[in-house]
Structures are given as C-alpha cells and as structure tokens.
C-alpha cells in the first residue's frame, strides 16, 4: 500500500508522469498512422478540422491499396524473403557458432573476430560494389538478389548471439553423449541444440525482424513492381513525384507492420533476450 498522500504524489512524479510521457511519445506515431489510414480525404486535407480524432471513419484507403497496387504481392515477397533468409541464416549461423563456442581448433580466434567484425560492418559500406556484383550475376529484379544478400546481415548476428547460448551448456553433457557413442554432430543436434531452443528462437525472431526491416538492398535490386517488398513498394509507388497518397501510405505502413508486431507480441521475452544478450553478460 501507498504510504499516504505524499507517497502517492512522489510515485506520480517518479513513475506515472514519466511513464505516461514515454508511452505517449513512443506510441503516438502509430496512433497517427492508424487514424490517418481511416480518415476520408475530406478530413485529411482540411486544416480546419480537429485532426486528433476521426470524425467519419472509412476503409476506402485500404480498399484502394488492395485494389490499385500490388500490396498483397509485396507482402508475400516480404514474408517469403524474410522466412527463407531467416532459416538459411539460422542454419549457417548455428554451424558457425557451434565450433566457435565449443571446440578448440587452429584459426578459431580469427574466425570469431571475423564474425564480430562482419556483424558490425554496416550495409552502406558495401551496397555500391554489391549492386555491381548482383548485376554481373544477372540477378537484378529477382527475389534471389535479396535472398542472397540479406544473410550477410543475419548470419553474423545469429552466429554471435548463439555462441553465447552454446557456451552456457555444460561440456559434461556432450562428453557423456560421445562416450555413449554419439558423434560430434549427433551430440550437437541431439544434446546441445535442444537445450538452446530459447537462443534459437531469439535469433530466429530477431533475424526475421531484421529481414522485414531491410530497405537498402531491396530498393536497389528490386525495381519492378511485382518483385518489390512492402517498404520499397510503399515508398516508390504510393509517392509519385510530388503526389503523396497519404491514406494508402498509412494503410500500407500499418498492414506492413502487422507481421512483425504479431510475431513480436507472441515472443516479446525472446526478442528482449536477443536484444540484450549481446550487451549484458548473464
């Protein structure tokens, strides 16, 4: 219980006031996105109408978005690319993290440093040479172009995150399995990986989010409407020159955020674990 009025006042100042401020500041843009997407144009473009609420909600922008653009195709492309690259990166990341975390071999230190460094190399450093490479491979305007390049961001991340989890499994478990006749590979798949399920989930969810967030490679490699992802489609086709289709843009932004938000809402704790694993020693 609160210790009288003074305690309540202090609690208000130290907790509810700043908490309220942060919630409003962080969530207002999403509220704005949502109500803009259901405002009729006569409300959107009338500066004399109070803009903070919707007076007559309509779904025209959603209907137009689905009718007049390739939004469903973009969504399908985005999800397909995100799922494929997440799975590939998780598999290759696991294969890299396991020996780095659990065995001693010549060259281990160099590979570990290499993984950390590639994880930190930002895309803008590589996109121009990468565009030339993709051109020479003749992969322009194919989803393969992004499926091939996204893992450059995701594999080092997955490997780095999983190394921490793999290190936490006691060596004795693996040794016992090997004395029982299991090979190194069997010991990994049957003993260590099941114990690291939370780590694999964190890495997978995080990789999926990163893949959905990617924009630069998709913008460069995907210039035809039917291969675009949601962010690229929205930016290039709902903004034409000086004309902004605000209602549809907001509808696309909201719908485009749904897959990430749904996955996130189911696995918040794994997501947070993935986020903090790299920076907080457990």
């Amino acid at each position: 219980m609160m210790a009288g009025g003074r305690g309540l006042g202090r609690r208000f100042l130290r907790l509810y006031l700043p908490l309220g401020f942060f919630l409003v500041a962080m969530l207002f843009p999403f509220y704005w996105m949502a109500i803009t997407s259901i405002k009729p144009n006569r409300e959107l473009y009338n500066p004399r109408i109070m803009p903070l609420i919707v007076h007559q909600p309509v779904l025209t922008h959603y209907v137009d978005l689905l009718d007049q653009t390739n939004f469903l195709t973009w969504t399908y492309n985005t999800l397909l690319v995100a799922v494929v690259t997440t799975v590939v990166s998780l598999v290759l990341g696991t294969m890299m993290a396991y020996p780095l975390a659990r065995t001693n071999f010549p060259g281990a230190a160099i590979v570990a440093i290499g993984v950390a460094a590639t994880y930190l190399v930002p895309q803008p450093l590589l996109f121009i040479p990468m565009s030339d490479i993709i051109n020479r491979l003749d992969l322009g305007n194919t989803l393969s172009a992004v499926m091939l390049t996204y893992p450059t961001l995701l594999i080092p991340f997955c490997a780095w995150l999983l190394m921490g989890y793999f290190k936490s499994v006691p060596r004795e478990l693996e040794e016992a399995a090997r004395i029982d006749g299991a090979s190194r590979f069997q010991a990994m798949v049957q003993i260590v990986l099941p114990l690291c399920t939370p780590g694999l989930l964190s890495a997978g969810i995080f990789a999926f989010t990163l893949a959905q967030n990617e924009f630069l490679y998709a913008l460069i490699f995907l210039t035809k409407s039917d291969v675009r992802t949601v962010p690229v489609g929205a930016i290039t086709e709902l903004i034409r020159g000086d004309v902004f289709y605000w209602g549809q843009l907001m509808a696309a932004a909201l719908l485009g955020s749904v897959p990430v938000a749904v996955i996130y809402s189911f696995f918040v704790d794994y997501y947070v674990a993935g986020l903090t694993a790299g920076s907080v020693k457990s």
Binding site: P29, F30, N213, A253, L254, Y271
Partner: peptide, 21 residues
C-alpha cells in the same frame, strides 16, 4: 516494456512514413 519497444521493432521505413505526415 513491450509497448515501449515498438518503435524499434516496426520496420524503419514504415514508421518514418508516419513521421513524414
């Protein structure tokens, strides 16, 4: 905590579109 992290997980381009408006 879950709600406060939303700006970071929503694809940047999509939330930036809301900011443009």
């Amino acid at each position: 905590r879950a709600f406060l992290l939303l700006p970071f997980i929503v694809p940047t381009v999509l939330s930036t579109v809301a900011w443009m408006w």
